[in-house]
């Protein structure tokens, strides 16, 4: 029996994180950059977690990344994931710096490797928001 697709729920948002999830809904990976110290941060916050400045803006990232590490999940008792096993849980390092937890999809789980080049791909949820996953570049 082939695994079921994971059914992603609509993400919970607040004013600090909404731009990210709305970006995903448009198929864009939106990141925060501090206008004072220039650092790119993720997850988004109401201030810069490097210099505590409140001056942040958003920009559309390239969506290009490399797999930092991953695991093929064979057992998860949570109903949302139980029948989706095996699935690939991963951390990817974005070209712009930040590290994201994600799923790698669009290829056989066994073909995923560390340092593999991947790009962002999005599942659209209710409220025109989205969930980013990564596929082979």
């Amino acid at each position: 029996m082939s695994p079921k697709e994971i059914e992603y729920r609509t993400p919970s948002t607040n004013w600090q994180t909404l731009a990210f999830w709305e970006g995903c809904g448009r198929g864009e990976l939106v990141l925060q950059r501090c206008q004072d110290c220039g650092i790119v941060q993720h997850r988004p916050r109401g201030l810069c977690a490097s210099c505590l400045s409140s001056s942040l803006d958003h920009f559309v990232a390239s969506g290009r990344a490399k797999v930092h590490t991953f695991t093929i999940t064979h057992q998860n008792g949570m109903p949302a994931f139980r029948d989706a096993c095996p699935y690939v849980l991963a951390y990817v390092d974005l070209e712009e710096g930040p590290r994201l937890m994600t799923h790698i999809v669009g290829c056989a789980p066994e073909s995923v490797f560390i340092d593999m080049a991947v790009r962002a791909d999005f599942v659209i949820t209710d409220k025109d928001l989205g969930i980013p996953r990564f596929v082979p570049a």
Binding site: I6, Y8, R9, P11, S12, T13, N14, Q16, T17, W21, H42, R43, T73, N76, M78, A80, F81, A84, Y87, L89, L100, M101, T102, H103, I131
Partner: peptide, 11 residues
Amino acid sequence: PEAAFIAPYGM
């Protein structure tokens, strides 16, 4: 919302 960056991925 703070956990939303992890929650979708079933870690």
